[in-house]
């Protein structure tokens, strides 16, 4: 059930470094594909800082709460044997047997269920707590944009991201996943559920260093990927040299342009007015389908 739907292609747009233009690429790709009547959905997987919705005229058509279970320990039944504490690998259960104190630190709980298995006296039950929401937005009358959003103070966005990706309806042939930044768990979970990953970078030393980390990560999980260099012209040539040296496919170079930055800052879609950019993104897509896709159209 968690396997990618075979006839839908999922493309994750990611970058190690933040602010390189992930959301810029994914929103414009989503827009350009929709305009060409592709059946496309988009998921904003950056659950800590979701922004994609701001670029579309949209309407909320659905919302689901994402929860995890946390243990509730009944201290009247508890024998203070300490087994739940021993089984919990996240230090989420605090116990002081002589004082007959047992407490659950909910923020540390990972919902693994080990404590319930450990408890032989039936003192542990579970209750749901909210981690965040998955909201479905309708864009141009189609419920095609999903947003993962964690509550402030929630430690990991992974559960909410997974829930959002699961909710992509099977009416779509293409899904664009706007990935969270970084190279750790949230990124890996997003990339792992995609068929192809577009890495967005900028031609600076910071951009290059983070790109290398992302490439290393994608290689360990065996995902095909290509690179878009955003803000080309700023910085230096080292990203280009790296791509050539490592034989990594360059999908597109987008020159730095202050006007684009201003349009973007106002929450505008550049591809709406810039046909050339729109066409470029479409050919990136067609290129990916040709080489890695499962002719879904």
């Amino acid at each position: 059930m968690n396997q990618p739907v075979s006839d839908m292609i999922k493309i994750a747009v990611a970058s190690g470094k933040g602010g390189t233009g992930k959301t810029y690429i994914s929103t414009n790709l989503f827009y350009s594909l929709s305009k060409k009547n592709y059946r496309v959905a988009m998921v904003d997987c950056d659950a800590e800082a979701p922004n994609a919705v701001a670029f579309f005229e949209s309407e909320i058509v659905g919302k689901t709460e994402v929860t995890q279970k946390v243990p509730v320990i009944n201290s009247d039944i508890c024998t203070f044997c300490g087994k739940c504490h021993e089984y919990c690998n996240y230090n989420a259960i605090f116990i002081l047997p002589p004082m007959k104190i047992v407490k659950v630190i909910e923020d540390l709980c990972h919902d693994c269920g080990a404590c319930s298995v450990a408890c032989k006296s039936g003192a542990i039950s579970e209750k749901p707590v909210s981690l965040g929401q998955v909201t479905t937005f309708s864009v141009k009358g189609k419920p095609s944009l999903l947003e993962a959003r964690i509550n402030i103070g929630v430690m990991s966005p992974v559960t909410v991201i997974k829930a959002a990706i699961k909710q992509i309806d099977n009416q779509s042939d293409i899904a664009i996943l706007d990935s969270p930044p970084g190279t750790s768990c949230p990124f890996v979970q997003t990339a792992a559920s995609a068929d192809y990953v577009i890495l967005v970078t900028e031609p600076t030393p910071f951009g290059l260093s983070d790109l290398k980390q992302s490439v290393e990560t994608l290689k360990t999980i065996n995902k095909p990927f290509g690179v878009i260099i955003n803000r080309a012209g700023l910085g230096n040539n080292s990203v280009m040299e790296y791509l050539t040296h490592e034989n990594i496919q360059l999908l597109l170079e987008i020159p730095f342009n202050k006007e684009i930055a201003v349009l973007y800052s106002n929450g505008r879609l550049v591809s709406e007015t810039n046909e050339i950019f729109s066409e470029q993104l479409l050919s990136v897509f067609e290129n990916i389908i040709e080489n890695h896709g499962n002719s879904s159209n």
Binding site: G18, G19, E48, A49, I150, I152, G153, V154, M155, S156, P157, P180, P181, G182, P186
Partner: peptide, 10 residues
């Protein structure tokens, strides 16, 4: 610090 508002930021 890292970007975001999750565990590493906290």
């Amino acid at each position: 610090g890292p970007p975001g508002i999750g565990c590493p930021v906290i």
